[in-house]
């Protein structure tokens, strides 16, 4: 999938992946896509909750071995 920006959150634990996702989205334009890579298994649920509560769209979640890849479209 094409994306405009990538956030490497590998090795970080709660709440850093979410906090850094929020920061990364802050300087992006509406409609742009952020790719987030995380190794925190809790981030699957957390990213869904983040998207639901902030209105940003979680387009897809991929599991690649021990890594989780998220694509978010900024609201």
């Amino acid at each position: 999938m094409d994306y405009d920006k990538e956030l490497d959150a590998r090795g970080l634990s709660c709440p850093l992946p979410i906090v850094k996702t929020k920061k990364s989205l802050a300087d992006m334009l509406s409609g742009q896509i952020l790719k987030v890579i995380s190794t925190d298994s809790g981030s699957i649920k957390d990213m869904q909750a983040f998207a639901k509560q902030t209105g940003n769209e979680l387009m897809s979640t991929l599991e690649q071995g021990k890594e989780f890849v998220f694509f978010l479209r900024k609201a």
Partner: peptide, 11 residues
Amino acid sequence: FILASTAAALG
């Protein structure tokens, strides 16, 4: 600190 920073990230 975890709850406060997360809640802030959620708006």
